[in-house]
Design a protein around this nucleic acid. Structure first.
Lengths: 130, 130
DNA sequence: TACCAAGTTGACGTATAGGTAAACTTGACG
DNA sequence: CGTCAAGTTTACCTATACGTCAACTTGGTA
């Protein structure tokens, strides 16, 4: 299966997604048990569509950013609420909260990256004096 | 105790730092048990210097960035190794690894913040049409 | 038809990061 | 001297995020 085929496909098995994202099938089932994704079933077998795949990407990105699955569930609901209707004010409040945290994180990141680059510079200088 | 006093002081009790950083004394003791900080003792009582306070700041920043305490321990060792001497190449490898992760995180962050701002815009529009 | 690969559920185990409670010590103060 | 605040250790408890295993079903293939 090549990239083009993957992009065109509409149905995925649990192993397809596990392989594509480098996680285990067990993890995907776990996310479903927490309500983060809701694949269809054909008999007992899970069948994933592109929507589930997209959600999975959002989940993994959230994890890379250090969010708990609970946080991520709420985050995903922001996307859902949007297309539905929801209590817009509540939605906005949550978005603001999350944005505030992320912006602080962004500042932390910049500082840390700068410090690490400085450490790298000092270490490199020691390797190549002059 | 005002800011100036705090800045000038050289010795801190565990409660001082806990209060200043909004964490519990238990958490600080836990970090010590993991070797992240090594306060002096006067009898059984821990006495913290500015160095410990600075490390605590690095620890908390690391946590905000989603690192495990183990990661953070290694991260702190980068600072130590620098002033000492260490195996510079190994140090550099670790710095590169960490930088790579942080830079990916930075990209994730930018994407996520943009998406949340878009969601906020859509929600705001719904509140104030026209 | 016999069997393998892939899927499923459920139970149990593990690592991380502390919180909570008990029981004790110590220094300062009225 | 009594006691109160603040500190200490030890032990046990909790939540999160899966991994591992057992036991079973099912669809396709030799």
């Amino acid at each position: 299966m090549n990239r083009i085929e993957t992009e065109h496909r509409d149905l995925f098995a649990i192993a397809d997604l596990a392989k594509e994202f480098g996680i285990t099938a067990r993890a995907i089932r776990f996310y479903e048990s927490k309500g983060l994704i809701t694949p269809e079933r054909v008999g007992a077998t899970r069948v994933f569509r592109r929507r589930d795949r997209a959600r999975l990407m959002l989940i993994l990105r959230g994890k890379r950013l250090g969010f708990s699955l609970k946080d991520i569930a709420e985050y995903l609901s922001l996307y859902d609420a949007q297309s539905q209707h929801a209590q817009v004010n509540l939605l906005l409040a949550k978005v603001e909260t999350r944005l505030a945290r992320l912006e602080r994180q962004q500042a932390d990141l910049a500082t840390t990256i700068a410090e690490l680059r400085e450490i790298r510079r000092l270490a490199t200088d020691r390797l190549e004096p002059r």
